[in-house]
Simulated scan of single mutants.
Amino acid sequence: MMDADTMVLPRLGDAAVEDPWGEDRPRRATARAATAARRWRIAAWLLPAAVMGALGAARIAASAPSAGELATRRAVTSPWPGIGAALTGDEVALGPYHLLLRGWAALFGAADLALRVPSLLAMIGAAALVGALAARIATPAAGLAAGAILAVLPTSIRYAQEAQPYALAVFAAVLATWLLVPALDRPAPRRLVPYAGAVLLLGLCQPVALLLLAGHGWTVLAFRRRVAVRWLAAVLLGLLPVAALLAAGLRDGGHLASGVRPGAAVLAATPGDLFGVAALGGVLAGLALFSLPLRYAAAICTAWALVPALGMLALAQAVPVWSAVNLLFTVPAWAVLGGVALSRARAAGAVAVLALVALPAVAAQLPG
């Protein structure tokens, strides 16, 4: 038969030929691609977390306590005032944080290093979640770059090494935004309830950081209006305990947050205070311009970066709450926008920009 001349059969004794017709090659290639993508997604959060941990821990015990840390230690080591007084002291925003550190100190002691470790852990978590968020809304390369930017910023390292609530507020803001993305795409209760929990955590860490919700609300109204009612219900679920706490504290004479009414000089100094070096603010703003087309993914972080700052500027006209540290929770948004921009650049250019951003942070960690 002529067919026998064209038929290909493996030799029965040739055990090395597992797939002589190549039928499994596409399947193996797909599996290899999926494995590589999974590894990149893991690297997008794991490597920034490792960098943040290394830089944050490098000189965590070297600096003397700041005035804010001394106040934290006094609040943590003073006689127990009762939970009501602990939560509604002079500065309402610090009550929950001081209560948390009381429990921490009971387990690990009240030495400077022990009291700073929660901030370090919070910033490690924030760097990891920034990488995961950017990988989710863009690419793993964007996640790796975004997480690296956040990890090497001087302010990230500084507040990872201070016993104050700002690092925890940064973590809560990133967590809330990371949970918002899947909640808006598929607004089931199992996604909205964790988001409400993140809103509650954010309000307990730093009430003024709840201005993040203005950015989230803008995103919802602009892109996901059909889920606005369910999003608002989740927000109210998270806000009600915080509102009750704030009302009690403000009624007893506490104040919301420390700050000033912004003038021209204060506003001009904000980029340097917010990013550690004023030039880094310019670099990140320039990178963000490449991410600003208001597609849904970029708009989430654009609103996170800009809307709370505008809201705080308006609020500060009536209440003196403006300060760079009160805006620290917006820094991860700039990192994500920068990471998305770098992921579109050539590898050499991206590495050069990351080195430029990292230089002040590395210099600050050198013994001097």
Rank of each mutant, 00 (worst) to 15 (best):
L115A: 11
L115V: 14
L115W: 10
R116H: 03
R116I: 08
R116Y: 04
R116Q: 05
V117Y: 05
P118T: 04
P118F: 11
P118N: 09
P118H: 09
P118S: 10
S119N: 02
S119Y: 07
S119T: 03
A122S: 11
M123A: 08
G125I: 02
A126W: 11
A127F: 05
A127M: 08
A127S: 14
A127H: 06
L129Y: 02
L129R: 02
V130A: 10
G131R: 00
G131L: 00
G131W: 00
A132Y: 03
A134C: 12
A135I: 01
R136E: 12
A138V: 04
A142S: 13
A142F: 10
A146D: 09
A146H: 10
A146P: 09
G147L: 02
G147I: 14
A148G: 10
P154G: 09
P154V: 10
T155L: 03
T155R: 02
Y159K: 07
A160P: 07
Q161S: 09
A163I: 14
A163Y: 11
Q164P: 06
P165F: 06
Y166V: 11
A169D: 14
A169Y: 07
V174H: 02
L175P: 07
L175V: 12
A176K: 07
A176W: 01
T177H: 04
T177A: 12
W178L: 15
L179N: 01
P182V: 08
L184P: 03
A188T: 13
A188Y: 03
P189I: 06
R190V: 15
L192E: 00
L192H: 08
V193G: 01
V193L: 13
V193P: 01
P194F: 07
Y195I: 02
Y195Q: 04
A196G: 04
A196E: 00
A196K: 01
G197K: 01
A198Q: 05
A198G: 05
L200P: 05
L204R: 08
C205F: 07
Q206L: 13
A209P: 10
G215V: 06
G215M: 05
H216V: 13
G217F: 06
W218D: 11
V220A: 02
V220D: 00
V220N: 00
L221Y: 09
R224Q: 04
R226C: 04
R226W: 01
V227Q: 04
V227W: 03
A228Y: 03
A228T: 15
A228N: 09
R230I: 07
R230T: 11
W231Y: 15
A233Q: 15
A233N: 15
A234I: 00
L236C: 15
L237A: 10
L237P: 02
L239I: 02
P241W: 07
P241G: 03
V242D: 12
A243M: 08
A243N: 06
A244S: 14
L245I: 09
L245H: 14
A247N: 11
D252T: 14
G254N: 12
H255E: 12
